[in-house]
Design a protein around this nucleic acid. Structure first.
Lengths: 344, 344
DNA sequence: GAACAGAATCAAACCGCTTTGGATATCGCA
DNA sequence: TGCGATATCCAAAGCGGTTTGATTCTGTTC
């Protein structure tokens, strides 16, 4: 079906060296032979064996994603969009993507193996924790990696790409306060992840700047699923003094919250306001003429594209300084917000 | 940091051959040496180079997913759960997963390359079309593959795993009819995909069995997103004679439909009934005490696990007959259905 | 103690590519 | 015409494993 380099060289009556160089664009081969070689390669359906190439070059042209096989499946729906983005960039750059789904306790071993066995040239770290062992490990192994998100605020020793979560949540909270809300709920993601922690900080910051007391009873932190949003919202609505607005960490819980609101026969954007972070998930689009939700929006797919780009750059230029990109999300007004009904 | 086979052999003072055999469990090496070898390998942190191994053995212990970089992103949210399942099985079996995200027009080339370059031992085909070139191609290239879904009803020449979509939709439609509904909408997936086509068939079959005339104005086929469900439902509710029930192809449009219903101040399960196919997506769980939706349920993650299993089996036992698994979905009753209001 | 089967080990070839270090051919120009 | 410079091309040595075919060590058996 397909031939190898040796056979191709034989068919052409020239050496493997020349054939290899012709195909890889080396200058020391005449255009005439290069053409002949290309033509014959096409004709005989020559496809170089990746393993041989990789063995010979020591590079694998592959980036890895290690995904913990956990109960916190929250990463999943976001992850698919991120992957789509990263995948596009990769395939354009001639890179493959490898993914390992392993139990949390095998994570470290997996990283070690992946790299020691030369299967990947670098990895993307997802959903970093406030203090994340993976980062330490990868630095110690000196594997190229980029983090989608970041650990500490002032981390400069590695490349990361993050959205300004603190600021985004500060902004939307201010918006709600400006609209007259002062009982505001928070449906956050799991707060051992830094993005969630920072969102919380932004939220609280806005409250305190406007001298509004926070209420622990209105603040939650769980996996960002639809039922989570529904359940918590429903409970909150039954409080003696329910919130007039909520801030959600993702459009999934926001949809859940919306469902609860509608089920209670309340009108979103009037009786109760909802704002959310919007990752621009392809299956939950929030960008009609008037979006369903008022939201801070930042495409996770685009983030995936850029992360892959940064990683590939890091792989191919090993000694460049770490890059840090802090993206500002855009704040779009939708139908889910409105002035607080004066309670007095 | 880590050593290669040669260095390991030198450190032990024995030949590479023996070391290789000791580690790979060949019988012709004494237990004593085997132990020594294992210990030293551990100590020196020996990790075999995948490329070398793969080059030498010709196997790559990797399965591939080729994902079209399309506008029909519908595959995404389902895909992440499927992947999680397949990934688990793979890592347990010592397989890697490779994914290529490529423009539709490069799809064929990608399959050819992936296999010719020996990067993967087999692939999983997603979202098969009624007449799918990929299947033809893969058969012709004689690459091991399994299809999640299937093309024609009677395909027996390759391995597939499918849920009985026709029957599922027939059942839920009958259920609605039994409840007294006779104006029933269908929010289907794109009908060039076989699963959608079969669902349609099941739906129509139930109608015709019960002598109910179908209404093209109530039948839609699009990417299974939330907004799709919302928009179509909203439109249908404005018809002079709106449906009293709808059948959805996925929980995403079902959520959208539900949103439209609630927004119209109608009560789901009373004013209007909704049934859906439920892929048991981890972020949209529908399995509370009383599920939101009455649904036919079949876990896509489990399907992912099983597909990987079937594929690996096919790879390792090349000459076994194709396997066909047709899973029956379970029908669970939720809060979204109820008897039709008598219109007369 | 010689003969020999079986267990344990080894040297070397091989997988298919890249790359080093020449070798040869071609050419410009004194 | 001769000679270095340049353009082409090549043989062979890796890359790091597996596997073949042979060799050395045991331990029996007669």
């Amino acid at each position: 079906m397909s031939v190898n380099l040796k056979q191709l060289a034989q068919a052409l009556g020239i050496s493997q060296t020349t054939v290899s160089r012709a195909l890889n664009g080396f200058p020391e081969v005449s255009e005439k032979t290069r053409h002949k070689v290309r033509a014959m390669a096409q004709q005989l359906n020559y496809v170089p064996s990746q393993h041989a190439t990789k063995l010979a070059t020591g590079k694998s042209k592959t980036i890895g994603h290690v995904i913990p096989q956990s109960d916190h499946l929250m990463i999943n729906p976001l992850f698919s969009d991120f992957l789509a983005g990263a995948g596009e960039t990769c395939s354009r750059a001639g890179y493959d993507m490898l993914m390992s789904v392993v139990p949390r306790e095998q994570e470290e071993q997996t990283y070690r193996n992946l790299f020691a066995s030369k299967r990947v040239d670098g990895v993307i770290v997802h959903a970093p924790l406030v203090k994340d062992d993976r980062v330490t490990l990868l630095q110690q192994l000196s594997i190229p990696f980029v983090v989608h998100g970041r650990c500490a605020d002032d981390d400069t020793s590695y490349t990361w790409l993050d959205v300004n979560n603190r600021r985004s949540f500060e902004r939307v909270t201010h918006l709600l306060i400006d609209l007259g809300h002062h009982r505001i709920g928070l449906l956050n993601g799991l707060e051992n992840m830094t993005f969630a922690q920072r969102r919380r900080t932004g939220f609280l910051q806005a409250l305190s700047e406007r001298k509004i007391e926070m209420d622990q009873g209105l603040m939650f932190a769980q996996d960002m699923t639809e039922p989570y949003g529904y359940n918590r919202m429903r409970e909150m609505l039954e409080l003696p003094s329910p919130p007039t607005a909520v801030v959600c960490a993702s459009i999934l819980p926001a949809m859940g919250a919306l469902r609860a609101v509608q089920e209670a026969r309340l009108e979103p954007g009037k009786d109760i306001s909802i704002v959310t972070h919007d990752d621009v998930l392809s299956f939950l689009t929030n960008n009609r003429d008037v979006p369903i939700f008022t939201a801070v929006r930042s495409s996770i797919k685009t983030a995936g594209m850029r992360c892959a780009e940064l990683l590939i750059n890091e792989i191919e230029n090993p000694h460049t300084d770490p890059v840090h990109e802090l993206w500002e999300a855009e704040l779009v007004l939708g139908a889910s917000t409105g002035p607080a009904l004066s309670a007095d």
